[in-house]
């Protein structure tokens, strides 16, 4: 079977053309995505003075690892930040993914009468948000979550988008499967856990990836709720502080008393970006295998 398809493909001119276009287009776009990153990398390895004189460059003109030296001066900070972000990401993604999947399954069941009401209840929150003041007061004064990692973990568990997305993914599994399992006397939760979950790996991988990326990129809640008195704070907040406070120190005319510090500002920003972003390249291939698995599950099923 496989070989006959392969043979068939080889003969088909249009398909070959589509593939050719695909390679070219995706290759080019990938390069386009990579270029600025190379610029970041190049700049991070350039001496500060050269940046001031000549601007950014793809190839470091005046090679220097000074910025990295400063970034790693306090390796604890980076390692600690990584650990915090990783822990929050893993726990948050696991819990969030499970809840989202469960809800998504329930909400797409045509025989679930409250599904529209609940869907609306969830969707409505994307339109109307209370704003930062009440959210801040509720999180810090009511629940006392200031300087507590939960203040970052909880808000990132799910978004209405992910729940609705999950719902539409699961809908592609025929309802007949649920119905026949029900005939056999299986409960709703068991059907979800043992039948549906294994069939939705691509969906789970997608949603999980989104939740994880959300946590990985999170800095706003961390900025609001985690004060500098926390020794270790999420990675992106660390990066954000490096990048923006340097700007502030330079441009501010309000606070008159900021000491000039000997920092390679530009290259340090870029070096921090590289350190915080680089490992993400490993992130995606990890998830990718689940996408491929999804295909085989589908094939076996038929």
């Amino acid at each position: 079977m496989e070989t006959s398809i392969a043979r068939f493909r080889g003969k088909d001119g249009t398909s070959a053309l589509v593939r050719g276009v695909g390679y070219a287009l995706i290759g080019l776009f990938a390069l386009f995505c990579l270029l600025p990153f190379i610029l970041v990398l190049g700049t991070s390895l350039t001496a500060e003075k050269t940046i001031t004189l000549h601007g950014y460059n793809i190839w470091p003109r005046d090679f220097s690892t000074f910025a990295y030296k400063i970034v790693f001066e306090n390796p604890d900070m980076i390692v600690g930040s990584y650990a915090v972000t990783l822990c929050i990401t893993i726990v948050g993604t696991a819990v969030g993914l499970f809840v989202v999947a469960m809800t998504g399954y329930a909400l797409q069941r045509p025989d679930f009468r409250s599904r529209n009401a609940i869907s609306f209840l969830i969707y409505f929150t994307t339109l109307f948000q209370g704003g930062v003041v009440p959210f801040y007061i509720i999180m810090t004064q009511w629940f006392g979550l200031k300087d507590n990692y939960l203040s970052v973990l909880l808000p990132g568990l799910m978004t209405p988008f992910l729940v609705i997305m999950m719902k539409s993914f699961v809908r592609s599994i025929p309802h007949a499967i649920t119905e026949s399992a029900k005939m056999d006397g299986a409960g709703d939760f068991r059907i979800f856990l043992q039948l549906i979950l294994p069939m939705t790996t691509p969906a789970l991988a997608t949603i999980g990836l989104f939740i994880a990326i959300g946590y990985w990129n999170e800095w706003y809640n961390a900025m609001l709720f985690l004060s500098p008195n926390m020794t270790y704070r999420p990675l992106q907040l660390f990066l954000y502080n490096v990048v923006t406070s340097a700007d502030f120190v330079r441009n501010s005319s309000v606070a008159s008393n900021i000491q000039p510090r000997d920092m390679p500002l530009e290259s340090m920003k870029m070096a921090t970006a590289v350190v915080a972003t680089g490992p993400v390249i490993l992130f995606y291939p990890l998830v990718q295998r689940f996408f491929i698995k999804g295909i085989t599950v589908g094939a076996v099923k038929g």
Partner: peptide, 16 residues
Amino acid sequence: LTQSLLFLPYFISFVL
């Protein structure tokens, strides 16, 4: 490879 590369820009903050 390409999928990983396509992902990269999403992790660069707006300031940068």
